[in-house]
């Protein structure tokens, strides 16, 4: 909760008004994060976000109509600069992975202590991408079975693969940095790159699925 850095303009897409207000209340106390608006639906967000242009958008997955995953995918087209972070009640890896493929650059559980949420927002703003070992394994699995590139994991750089491998073993960023003799920020940078490649690759694969009628999910 440093006050040195300017506050990050964020917006929240959350249909649970009580939880949203409580969290917004905490953000006001924290001062590092300025939550301007709470959108109760994805549709509202989709309409307002382009003009609002928040730096980070916290998105709940389960929304009344359009899901958070779809919102992320659409915003990735209309406002690619907005960093989307999934904020969900569920530790449903598959669903979260879908959101990451759609363009989210991280995810948080709602029950995460609010200080950690603020920290995560700051990390994301700084170019980081929080990734759990489970997600790392999904990423590995994704690139391993990806049909978008026959060379599979080779789409990732050597270093990215090393970071992924260590992360999927449950190693913390610090240990990974130490083991690879890189900085913590470099680890975060690699993870962001991995996310980006995941998104690009997801779109490529989606296109290929569309044209090639691939049945594989």
């Amino acid at each position: 909760m440093t006050t040195a850095t300017p506050s990050i303009r964020i917006a929240l897409v959350e249909d649970d008004r009580h939880f949203a207000n409580t969290l917004r209340c905490f953000f006001q106390l924290a001062e590092t994060v300025n939550c301007a608006v709470v959108f109760p639906t994805a549709e509202d967000a989709l309409r307002e976000v382009p003009s609002l242009a928040p730096e980070v958008l916290l998105v709940d997955i389960n929304l009344p109509q359009m899901s958070g995953v779809e919102l992320v995918a659409r915003l990735k087209v209309t406002c690619p600069a907005v960093l989307c972070v999934i904020l969900t009640m569920y530790e449903e890896t598959a669903l979260i992975f879908d959101a990451l493929k759609a363009g989210a650059c991280g995810y948080l559980l709602k029950r995460t202590p609010p200080q950690e949420i603020v920290a995560a927002i700051q990390q994301v703003r700084a170019g980081g991408s929080p990734m759990s070992p489970q997600i790392a394994r999904h990423v590995v699995s994704f690139f391993h079975t990806s049909r978008a590139n026959d060379s599979g994991l080779e789409i990732l750089t050597e270093r990215e693969r090393e970071v992924l491998a260590l992360l999927s073993k449950g190693f913390m960023y610090k240990r990974i940095a130490d083991q690879l003799h890189i900085s913590l920020d470099t680890v975060r940078f690699h993870l962001r790159k991995i996310y980006e490649k995941l998104q690009v690759h997801s779109r490529a694969e989606a296109t290929m699925k569309y044209h090639g009628r691939q049945v594989e999910e």
Binding site: D16, F19, T22, C25, N62, M89, R111, P114
Partner: peptide, 24 residues
């Protein structure tokens, strides 16, 4: 979903409120 959204959300809200009280 209901447990998460209603009960979980309130409980989570409770933990956040603690931090708010502590700060306020």
């Amino acid at each position: 979903r209901d447990m998460h959204d209603v009960v979980g959300s309130r409980l989570t809200q409770l933990t956040v409120m603690h931090d708010i009280f502590a700060a306020e």
